[in-house]
């Protein structure tokens, strides 16, 4: 058989067989295989991209969370500050009120004391007047008996008065 001259019988069979195999494999093997490969690749790519998306979403949530937390913290600070201010105000007011109240009660006490004092002074004055009247009575009685005794008596009384 020819060595470098192609044999037409072999060419004939080769064309038929190879053509047929090409057709069969194209239709029943390469199509499904390549499609399966493509599908798998695209499904893997999809899975990867959706994972990436999920990761991004989670990151977004995290930053959202942080924002919310920061907001809450700020609000808390504001509320605390306000509360402190209110507290200080209340305390100050209470103190003022208390002071005013104290002042008032002191004032009234002072007024009372003053009133009592004047009353007492009036009383003393009345008593002194009575005493004076009594002494005068007695002096008048004694004068009637003895001059000398009278004088001594007045003097003694006056001494007593001085002691008082």
């Amino acid at each position: 058989m020819g060595f470098v001259t192609p044999d037409y019988g072999t060419i004939f069979w080769m064309v038929i067989i190879f053509g047929l195999v090409l057709f069969i494999l194209k239709k029943f093997a390469w199509g499904p295989i390549l499609k399966a490969l493509k599908d798998r690749e695209s499904s893997i790519a999809d899975a990867l991209s959706s994972a990436e998306r999920a990761r991004k979403e989670v990151a977004g949530l995290k930053s959202d969370n942080e924002k919310i937390i920061a907001e809450a913290r700020r609000e808390k600070d504001v509320i605390l500050k306000e509360a402190r201010e209110i507290k200080d105000k209340i305390i100050a007011e209470a103190k003022q009120q208390a002071a005013a109240e104290a002042q008032k009660s002191i004032e009234s006490a002072r007024q009372q004391i003053a009133a009592e004092k004047t009353a007492a002074i009036n009383d003393i004055k009345k008593q002194v007047a009575e005493l004076s009247v009594m002494i005068a009575e007695k002096v008048v009685q004694k004068e009637l008996e003895k001059q000398k005794d009278q004088e001594a008596l007045v003097e003694g009384l006056l001494k007593d008065l001085k002691l008082k």
Binding site: L25, W30, A36, D39, R40
Partner: peptide
């Protein structure tokens, strides 16, 4: 051999995409 191997592969490729 080609037909046997690749038709078999195609069958398994079709049934196991994911």
């Amino acid at each position: 051999l080609l037909l046997f191997i690749f038709l078999k592969i195609a069958k398994s490729a079709r049934s196991s995409v994911d």
